[in-house]
Computed example of a mutant assay.
Amino acid sequence: MSLGHATLAEADHWIQTLAPAPVLACTHLVREPFPHVAISLLTAHTFATAPDLEPAVAAAATGQFGRAVRFPGVERLTGALTVSEILQRSSIARVEVLGSGPATPDTIVETGDFVRPQFRDGELILITTPAAGGTLVPFETRNPTPCCTDH
């Protein structure tokens, strides 16, 4: 579906207002008919898309990538957790270190209470980056630096 959200934050906020919460909700950056954020939902509810935004729905549906905002276990991913705990508490299938491959099960991930895994080929994959003290942090942060907010 597409409501024409201009930013990921706007789409995230809209998703968080849904009651009941969807089982899975992903955002997709689309270019048709103009650059914006489309949304895919796994829910019993239906949502209408304006006819002029239907190309965005088609683009999101054919894409192989999404950014998960809601997914099973997301509410249990707070604070510092080991990779193993993240995999046990949620539907995330893998935790990867950007450019380095899979993270080891005992590595600590400082979640910052904000986890947005990628939905790729039917799996949720949390991409992380190294942080101080041998820990990891999710690649996407709640408040990205200004140089990255438009990417």
Rank of each mutant, 00 (worst) to 15 (best):
R70C: 05
F119D: 06
L8I: 10
L29D: 14
R31C: 13
V23T: 07
S2I: 08
P144T: 06
H5R: 08
G112V: 06
A6F: 04
V83Y: 02
D113T: 11
A50Y: 02
H5L: 08
P22R: 07
I108Y: 09
P22F: 07
Q118V: 09
F114G: 08
A19T: 15
T43W: 02
H151Y: 11
V115G: 12
Q118D: 13
L3F: 13
L29C: 12
S91G: 15
A131V: 04
A21C: 04
F114I: 07
A48P: 00
V37Y: 03
V83R: 07
A9L: 14
P117D: 03
T145S: 13
A21R: 11
T62P: 00
A68G: 06
C147G: 13
A21Y: 04
A58R: 15
P138G: 04
T128S: 01
E54T: 04
P51D: 12
S2A: 13
P35A: 09
A132M: 11
G63Q: 01
F71P: 02
A50I: 11
L18K: 13
E123R: 11
D113P: 05
P20R: 03
G4L: 07
L77K: 08
G101H: 02
S40L: 06
V23R: 05
A131W: 09
L136G: 04
Q118M: 10
P102W: 08
V95K: 03
T129V: 15
A21E: 14
L124N: 04
M1Y: 11
F139S: 14
V95Y: 01
T128H: 00
A103K: 09
A61F: 02
L87E: 03
F47C: 01
L53F: 11
V30P: 03
L8F: 12
L136H: 05
Q16P: 00
G4M: 07
A61N: 09
S40A: 13
L29Q: 13
A11Q: 04
I127D: 01
T43G: 01
A9R: 15
L42M: 06
F71A: 06
V97E: 06
T128V: 01
T43K: 00
G134S: 07
G79I: 14
G66D: 01
C147Q: 14
P55M: 00
L81F: 10
R116M: 15
G134Q: 05
V37L: 04
F139W: 13
T49Y: 09
V115H: 11
S2C: 12
V37R: 04
A25I: 07
L81H: 09
P146Y: 12
I86S: 08
P20H: 05
S90Y: 00
V137T: 09
A132E: 15
G66Q: 00
A58T: 14
T43M: 00
T82K: 02
T17R: 11
A58M: 08
L124H: 07
E123G: 02
A131I: 07
R89C: 06
S84R: 15
Q16I: 06
H13C: 10
A80G: 01
H13K: 12
C148I: 12
I92N: 04
G122Q: 02
P55G: 02
R70I: 10
A50W: 06
L3C: 12
S2N: 07
T43N: 00
V30A: 08
T111Q: 01
P117S: 06
A68W: 03
D150I: 12
